[in-house]
Amino acid sequence: MKRTLPGFPLSFGFMMFYMSFIVFIPLIALVWYTMGIGWEAFWNAIFDPRLFAALRLSFSASFIAAIINGVFGLLIAWVLVRYDFFGKRIMDGMIDLPFALPTAVAGIALTSLYAENGWIGSLLAPLGIQVAFTPIGVTIALTFIGLPFVVRMVEPVLRSLDQETEEAAGLLGASPFTIFKTVLLPLLTPAILAGMTLAFARALGEYGSVVFIAGNIPMQTEIVPLLIMNKLEQFDYAGATAIATVMLALSFILLLGANILQWWLSRNLGQKVVDSSR
């Protein structure tokens, strides 16, 4: 391609300067600082039963929330792509609410809803189920936060599929369940997984929507970002940066995984477009 358009040095230069100033230099400073605290302080911060409990909660609640969003995200994407019904546009718009609503607002709304005297909490209390201030509450907040990812990832893939294969399978006598399992699911799995990975990564770092409903009981309902917050409030910068560096490494591995899935997806979808155009 010809480089006839002007403005490359200006736009590229400004982009690099801006990203370095806002994102790269601060992140490098964090890793640099962690390297300066020494191995002993680092291990002391990492080998802490409270951190292990927080990691266990963060990972399990984020994982369960990602599974819930995988199942219901697929279902909602299916409904939005394949059916026409009253209220479809409202449903489509509502999906983006967790992206646009401030996390603290989501946090206090969910807490009020699921507290023992709340609309849903009061229905669950007689059954002996407590949601607010338990790991279930954490999972609900993380489900809210991750809701759009799978829907928005699966929708375009579902739309791009031609329905001939499904119809052929139906004509050959396959049941809807068999068609779903053998024809649709294999094609949709990468998109579902990519969406779930993004939802999981977002959930791991989430703070605002969780702190209100979690109750923040040490060893029980304390998530990792809150632990970093606690260390900061005690001016334990070494401890805070050590945990943050570990979290950062985990997040980048997840982002890499999601990117590989998306790359795989676009390559295979690209293939599909070529196939149907022949």
Binding site: V23, T103, L204, I228, M229, M247, L255
Partner: peptide, 12 residues
């Protein structure tokens, strides 16, 4: 920034 926890974004 999407992959970084907001708490870490403040910490840096």
């Amino acid at each position: 920034p999407f992959a970084v926890s907001p708490v870490i974004a403040g910490l840096v």
